[in-house]
Write a protein that binds this DNA or RNA. Structure first.
Length: 154
DNA sequence: GCCAACGTTGGC
DNA sequence: GCCAACGTTGGC
Protein backbone atom coordinates (compact mmCIF):
# COMPACT_ATOMS: atom_id res chain seq x y z
CA UNK A 1 0.00 0.00 0.00
CA UNK A 2 1.18 3.49 -0.79
CA UNK A 3 0.68 6.86 0.84
CA UNK A 4 -0.07 10.20 -0.80
CA UNK A 5 -0.81 13.83 -0.16
CA UNK A 6 -3.64 15.43 -2.12
CA UNK A 7 -4.06 19.19 -2.30
CA UNK A 8 -7.29 21.04 -2.71
CA UNK A 9 -8.45 24.59 -2.26
CA UNK A 10 -11.13 24.55 0.43
CA UNK A 11 -12.93 27.43 -1.32
CA UNK A 12 -13.50 24.99 -4.18
CA UNK A 13 -13.61 21.65 -2.40
CA UNK A 14 -12.48 21.11 1.19
CA UNK A 15 -12.63 18.28 3.68
CA UNK A 16 -15.85 19.69 5.12
CA UNK A 17 -17.52 19.38 1.74
CA UNK A 18 -16.54 15.72 1.76
CA UNK A 19 -17.62 15.22 5.36
CA UNK A 20 -21.06 16.65 4.56
CA UNK A 21 -21.58 14.38 1.56
CA UNK A 22 -23.88 11.50 2.42
CA UNK A 23 -21.59 9.01 0.68
CA UNK A 24 -18.46 10.54 2.25
CA UNK A 25 -16.99 9.92 -1.15
CA UNK A 26 -16.03 12.08 -4.12
CA UNK A 27 -14.43 12.01 -7.54
CA UNK A 28 -11.01 13.69 -7.62
CA UNK A 29 -11.42 15.17 -11.08
CA UNK A 30 -10.05 18.19 -12.89
CA UNK A 31 -6.35 17.31 -12.68
CA UNK A 32 -4.64 18.72 -15.79
CA UNK A 33 -0.99 18.03 -15.12
CA UNK A 34 0.80 15.11 -16.75
CA UNK A 35 2.93 14.09 -13.79
CA UNK A 36 -0.11 13.98 -11.57
CA UNK A 37 -2.11 12.24 -14.31
CA UNK A 38 0.46 9.44 -14.35
CA UNK A 39 0.09 8.95 -10.62
CA UNK A 40 -3.70 8.91 -10.89
CA UNK A 41 -3.67 6.50 -13.81
CA UNK A 42 -0.81 4.17 -12.94
CA UNK A 43 0.26 4.36 -9.35
CA UNK A 44 -2.62 5.03 -7.00
CA UNK A 45 -4.28 1.81 -5.90
CA UNK A 46 -7.52 1.04 -4.12
CA UNK A 47 -6.89 1.14 -0.39
CA UNK A 48 -4.01 3.61 -0.57
CA UNK A 49 -4.27 6.38 2.01
CA UNK A 50 -3.76 10.08 1.43
CA UNK A 51 -3.49 13.20 3.51
CA UNK A 52 -6.09 15.81 2.58
CA UNK A 53 -4.25 19.12 2.31
CA UNK A 54 -5.85 22.55 2.14
CA UNK A 55 -3.97 25.10 0.02
CA UNK A 56 -4.48 28.75 -0.84
CA UNK A 57 -6.40 29.46 2.34
CA UNK A 58 -6.10 31.06 5.74
CA UNK A 59 -4.38 28.10 7.40
CA UNK A 60 -2.74 25.78 4.88
CA UNK A 61 -2.15 22.30 6.21
CA UNK A 62 -3.28 18.70 6.47
CA UNK A 63 -6.89 18.43 7.61
CA UNK A 64 -7.50 14.69 7.49
CA UNK A 65 -7.16 11.38 5.72
CA UNK A 66 -8.89 9.87 2.69
CA UNK A 67 -8.69 6.43 1.11
CA UNK A 68 -8.59 5.63 -2.59
CA UNK A 69 -11.98 4.01 -3.23
CA UNK A 70 -11.75 3.66 -7.00
CA UNK A 71 -8.60 3.49 -9.06
CA UNK A 72 -7.73 5.61 -12.07
CA UNK A 73 -10.33 5.94 -14.79
CA UNK A 74 -10.90 8.56 -17.52
CA UNK A 75 -12.00 11.97 -16.22
CA UNK A 76 -15.33 12.65 -17.94
CA UNK A 77 -15.22 16.39 -17.23
CA UNK A 78 -12.54 16.63 -19.94
CA UNK A 79 -15.12 15.51 -22.53
CA UNK A 80 -17.84 17.97 -21.53
CA UNK A 81 -18.10 20.96 -23.81
CA UNK A 82 -18.49 24.12 -21.82
CA UNK A 83 -17.13 22.54 -18.67
CA UNK A 84 -14.37 24.61 -17.06
CA UNK A 85 -12.09 21.56 -17.26
CA UNK A 86 -13.01 20.64 -20.81
CA UNK A 87 -10.02 19.62 -22.95
CA UNK A 88 -10.52 19.03 -26.69
CA UNK A 89 -7.37 16.86 -26.74
CA UNK A 90 -9.11 14.25 -24.61
CA UNK A 91 -11.76 11.90 -25.99
CA UNK A 92 -13.46 8.80 -24.59
CA UNK A 93 -11.55 6.69 -27.14
CA UNK A 94 -8.17 8.16 -26.22
CA UNK A 95 -8.56 9.84 -22.84
CA UNK A 96 -5.81 12.21 -21.76
CA UNK A 97 -6.92 12.86 -18.21
CA UNK A 98 -7.69 10.51 -15.33
CA UNK A 99 -9.30 10.70 -11.93
CA UNK A 100 -9.74 8.53 -8.85
CA UNK A 101 -12.45 8.40 -6.22
CA UNK A 102 -11.65 8.97 -2.58
CA UNK A 103 -13.61 8.33 0.60
CA UNK A 104 -13.23 10.10 3.91
CA UNK A 105 -11.37 8.16 6.57
CA UNK A 106 -10.89 10.83 9.19
CA UNK A 107 -11.05 14.54 9.70
CA UNK A 108 -8.49 15.63 12.28
CA UNK A 109 -9.78 17.42 15.37
CA UNK A 110 -6.98 19.90 14.72
CA UNK A 111 -5.22 20.34 11.40
CA UNK A 112 -1.49 19.79 11.08
CA UNK A 113 -0.65 23.22 9.82
CA UNK A 114 2.00 24.01 7.26
CA UNK A 115 3.72 25.90 10.08
CA UNK A 116 3.91 22.73 12.14
CA UNK A 117 5.13 20.72 9.18
CA UNK A 118 7.84 23.28 8.52
CA UNK A 119 8.84 23.33 12.17
CA UNK A 120 9.37 19.57 11.93
CA UNK A 121 10.92 19.59 8.47
CA UNK A 122 14.17 18.06 9.71
CA UNK A 123 12.46 14.90 10.94
CA UNK A 124 10.10 14.68 7.97
CA UNK A 125 12.97 13.99 5.59
CA UNK A 126 12.18 16.07 2.51
CA UNK A 127 8.42 15.82 2.57
CA UNK A 128 7.65 16.96 -0.98
CA UNK A 129 5.03 19.49 0.05
CA UNK A 130 7.79 21.38 1.85
CA UNK A 131 10.12 21.43 -1.09
CA UNK A 132 10.66 24.84 -2.63
CA UNK A 133 8.53 25.49 -5.68
CA UNK A 134 6.58 22.26 -5.47
CA UNK A 135 3.29 22.68 -7.27
CA UNK A 136 2.07 19.14 -7.86
CA UNK A 137 -1.44 18.67 -6.52
CA UNK A 138 -0.68 15.05 -5.59
CA UNK A 139 2.64 13.89 -4.19
CA UNK A 140 3.83 10.55 -2.78
CA UNK A 141 4.53 10.25 0.94
CA UNK A 142 6.83 7.57 2.35
CA UNK A 143 5.64 5.20 5.10
CA UNK A 144 8.06 6.78 7.51
CA UNK A 145 6.88 10.29 6.67
CA UNK A 146 3.29 9.16 7.05
CA UNK A 147 3.95 7.85 10.54
CA UNK A 148 5.80 10.97 11.61
CA UNK A 149 3.12 13.32 10.32
CA UNK A 150 0.43 11.28 12.09
CA UNK A 151 2.37 11.59 15.31
CA UNK A 152 2.09 15.37 14.95
CA UNK A 153 -1.69 15.02 14.71
CA UNK A 154 -2.10 13.03 17.92
C1' DG B 1 -1.80 41.92 -4.38
C1' DC B 2 2.96 40.34 -4.88
C1' DC B 3 6.16 37.31 -6.59
C1' DA B 4 9.01 33.08 -7.03
C1' DA B 5 8.83 28.85 -9.19
C1' DC B 6 7.31 25.89 -12.27
C1' DG B 7 4.66 23.76 -16.53
C1' DT B 8 3.08 24.58 -21.15
C1' DT B 9 2.99 26.65 -25.60
C1' DG B 10 4.62 27.90 -29.93
C1' DG B 11 7.86 30.15 -33.14
C1' DC B 12 12.08 29.22 -35.07
C1' DG C 1 15.34 20.73 -29.78
C1' DC C 2 15.78 25.40 -27.89
C1' DC C 3 13.94 29.00 -25.34
C1' DA C 4 11.14 33.19 -24.51
C1' DA C 5 6.61 34.29 -23.30
C1' DC C 6 2.85 33.25 -20.89
C1' DG C 7 -0.32 31.10 -17.44
C1' DT C 8 -0.87 28.91 -12.99
C1' DT C 9 0.14 27.75 -8.26
C1' DG C 10 0.36 28.90 -3.63
C1' DG C 11 2.54 31.03 0.41
C1' DC C 12 2.88 35.31 2.35
Amino acid sequence: MKYWLMKSEPSVFGIDTLARARSKRTGWDGVRNYQVRNMLRDEMKKGDLAFFYHSSCEEPGIYGIVRIAKEGHPDPTAFEHGHPHHDPKSSPATPTWYMVEVELVEKFALPITLKTLKANADTLDELLILRRGNRLSITPVTASQWKKVLKLAR
